[in-house]
Design a protein around this nucleic acid. Structure first.
Lengths: 66, 66
DNA sequence: ACTTTATGTAAAATATACTTTACATAATGA
DNA sequence: TCATTATGTAAAGTATATTTTACATAAAGT
């Protein structure tokens, strides 16, 4: 799974902590998600996509292997 | 989280087991997901949405509270 | 009546998401 | 130079997703 969280966070000019607060998770969840260390729940990806005004598909992309 | 898995599964005329095989999870994962007992990973929802030819947003909807 | 197919459900085990706490670093401004 | 802000990272703990196995039921066909 690749993701564009960092990009959309930059577009919206949010720190990791601000984004974390907006979707009610810890900063580390954002940090580790951003660096692709785990795959978030559908609830989280829906919340982020909604916040950024994009689809989940725009924010997260499957790679061969997952 | 509400979902429309059962509906799209019906549209594509797949049993729970067939769907499970197609996205490489157990039948119980489909069954419990369908009945809303837990929120799947983003990888799973992306795979299902792709298979059904819809967006994750069409397949899963946030409710107040999650 | 019997078998098969699809589904619901449940309990125990395992894998993984997510939290909390903490420390390190680089950049910025007082 | 000191304090602050944003980020990276890591370890331990908790919550939850997912698997495996198993049993029950209803529907459909023989």
């Amino acid at each position: 799974m690749k993701n564009k969280i960092k990009i959309h966070r930059a577009i919206h000019n949010l720190t990791q902590e601000e984004l974390a607060n907006k979707i009610c998770v810890s900063r580390q969840t954002i940090n580790t998600m951003e660096s692709g260390k785990y795959i978030p729940s559908t609830a989280l990806s829906l919340k982020m996509a909604k916040l950024f005004g994009v689809t989940v598909e725009e924010l997260f992309q499957l790679e061969r292997g997952d």
